[in-house]
Design a protein around this nucleic acid. Structure first.
Lengths: 191, 191
DNA sequence: GTCTATAAGGCGATAGAC
DNA sequence: GTCTATCGCCTTATAGAC
């Protein structure tokens, strides 16, 4: 049915990952997808309109991935978080969502909404995980769980920044392993 | 002497911080500085040329700031790192260097060089600090100091990403406090 | 739904006068 | 050193035929 529309969305998702929002033009999307200009503006009223659809789709995809990993990993809170942090990632390609956050156009509330939703959901789920672990006596009582959640997500996002700046594909993995090691020191045994 | 040249560099530093590289046009620099187009291309042969000069200046400035804080802070390694992480920062404005790393043009080696130098220097100094602390028995022997250094810088950079995505000015401070708390658990007492 | 032609405006840069 | 005028190219669309 909506084959062309979906093709445009998928192509935009790819280009947002590769080049961000501001540097991606409708023409880029047309070249990459093979769709014509007339079709583009038939299905979407603007570049921004398509980008929002693409970002919503990407947010859904990444949130699902996140939840799948947390739910399917056997073990305690640390095993779950470690499994998420250890998912294969390319430092040079960057985070499929976080990559575009600095584009000037992202100050637009409509464009920022999917990004905001993505990080909000991940943060809430991490908070929930840490909170429950703390209740069960498996996580140090002195930890502020909400701050620990933002620190976790920040470390992951920032490792993409360093990886790109230093052109080091292994940066994400290295930073994550170190952080997992730090988390380990917060593990406690239920009494 | 080089008043106009310096004015252009300072203006570019400001605009790189506000809008990044790709989204900043020579015209923006001219409007903001009051300098004319003729002067611009007299002092610099291209936008890229000016941007490199601006980024080198910014790198020097931030490296100096970093070293000053580490050297002037009394106490052990944790006190020094904490003092750096607690410097006043605006999550919404972003890191004055890290902010531009995702711009597509930054794949250009010449443009990336100052950014690369900046993170390389900070990383090395942090490594040196952690290494010495470990030798003196003040930091957990199990810590991989080089990974801990990149994790530290990653967490700081990523907190800007989350702060901008969630429009939360306090994000940097929250993530940093949590990370400092994690670092504290790695503190050991010299025997 | 998709095509091609066209538009107004910004981009990075250059030319040549003063 | 600084000014204004101009350039060719790219951008984000819109118009109107098929």
């Amino acid at each position: 049915m909506a084959a062309t529309r979906d093709l445009l969305i998928d192509t935009m998702k790819l280009l947002l990952w590769e080049r961000g929002y501001d540097a991606t033009s409708p023409n880029h999307v047309l070249e990459r997808s093979g769709v014509g200009k007339g079709s583009f503006y038939h299905h979407f009223k603007s570049k921004k309109d398509l980008a929002i659809a693409a970002m919503e789709s990407r947010a859904d995809e990444l949130i699902t991935e996140f939840e799948m990993v947390l739910n399917s990993t056997e073990g305690d809170w640390l095993a779950k978080v470690s499994a998420y942090l250890r998912l294969p990632r390319s430092a040079l390609k960057g985070c499929r969502m976080g990559r575009i956050v600095q584009d000037p156009s992202l100050e637009d509330e409509l464009l920022k909404a999917p990004l905001q939703r993505y990080f909000k959901v991940l943060n809430q789920q991490l908070c929930a995980l840490y909170t429950q672990a703390q209740k069960q006596g498996e996580l140090n009582k002195n930890c502020q769980v909400d701050n620990l959640a933002v620190a976790t997500l920040s470390m992951l996002q920032g490792s993409f920044v360093l990886g790109r700046a230093l052109t080091e594909e292994q940066m994400v993995a290295e930073a994550c392993e170190s952080f997992i090691c730090l988390l380990q020191s917060q593990k406690t045994v239920a009494s």
